[in-house]
Amino acid sequence: MQSESARMSSAAEARYRINAPNSKQRAVKVIALDAPSERIVKELAQRPWNGATFFTASAFGTTPKAGESFAGWLSDLAGRTKDLIDEVNSADLVVMIAAAGESAQAASIIGEACSVKRVMTTALVLGGNTVSDEALSKTLSHLRPWALMLVIASAEEYIADMLTALRA
């Protein structure tokens, strides 16, 4: 008699896999950390997504000074200010987009908020092959402490592929 594993891993048995949704929509927040990334994120936002939302932190490159709040620290792509903490609170995943060689200082604020709220972070660096090692190091030094997954990609199209793969 065939073993259970042999029987159940056959092509014929694959037909009986339950064909019902096995996940709910995830809240993926995509944040551009600098001006070059903002352009890319704006283009991405025009595509149809499964609930992903897009923001920019490029105007807020530095840590808020003592007493400043995070309330207006993020903006959507229409330029409306957004509360970072609110956005992180409702996120399952925060994707930070940075251009290689640009300062990714905003990552520390976003990353810290995600760390406090235990939200997964992914950083995507574009154009890693187009800048010097030193310039890339500068970007990485800001991202690494806060990104639980980091990708250095050559093609902008990778962001769309990644978000699609993640059902964003």
């Binding site: 995943l93 972070t121 992914t122 990708v151 990609a153 990778y158 592929d161 990644m162 793969a165 993640l166």
Partner: peptide, 12 residues
């Protein structure tokens, strides 16, 4: 999930 980026990038 996010940690699957190696697989996602390989397919890409």
């Amino acid at each position: 999930v996010s940690t699957d980026n190696g697989i996602i990038m390989a397919r890409h």
